[in-house]
Nucleic acid binder design. Structure first.
Length: 174
DNA sequence: GTTGAGCGTT
């Protein structure tokens, strides 16, 4: 109950965790660099340290439209792509697949938009643009969740399902 | 430390 007890406890804590132990976490932090930086769940734009790995799957892919971004530089990160793509619409998530062993980028990325028209506009505006000295190619993702939505590089889903920005949240049946 | 057609994580 004395202060000496607290000080003793602090010393024990320091001895239990030597500073050398933390070096193992420092070098390979590239894994959290390119993955899922932006999600709707987190209202604020978190930084690279925030990756929802460990949770169950992708953040929130309900009614999103994925774009495939090809021919990007191997050192281009999601932090570089997000400001560029977010200018043309609401970007829900940016994901860069990486090699599981080396952690290197595979040279392409997926950018998910919330609305279809904004995604289409990003394709028109950013396809062929030079990013980090390379000409990127932006197109709708052919495979994956919204494969049936895409025909010939455009969205052919029934427009009744693609509503305007006012998406009313229907009450969830129990 | 490099490379260059392609379609993605729990």
């Amino acid at each position: 109950m004395s202060r000496a007890t607290i000080i003793l406890a602090q010393k024990i804590t320091v001895q239990t965790f030597p500073t050398s132990k933390f070096k193992t976490l420092a070098p390979r932090s590239r894994h959290a660099q390119n993955t899922h930086l932006y999600s709707l769940a987190s209202s604020s734009k978190q930084h690279s340290d925030m990756s929802h790995f460990g949770r169950s799957g992708p953040p929130d892919i309900r009614d999103t439209f994925s774009l495939l971004v090809l021919n990007i530089t191997f050192r281009t990160t999601a932090d570089d792509l997000f400001p560029l793509f977010d200018k043309y619409g609401k970007v829900v998530d940016v994901f860069i697949p990486r090699d599981r062993r080396t952690g290197e980028s595979r040279g392409f990325a997926f950018v998910r938009y919330k609305y279809a028209d904004e995604a289409q506009k990003a394709v028109d505006k950013l396809d062929g643009r030079v990013v980090d000295g390379r000409e990127i190619m932006v197109q709708f993702a052919k495979y994956g969740p919204n494969a049936e939505r895409i025909r010939d590089g455009r969205i052919v889903e029934s427009t009744s399902k693609i509503k305007s920005r006012s998406r009313s949240r229907s009450p969830r049946p129990k």
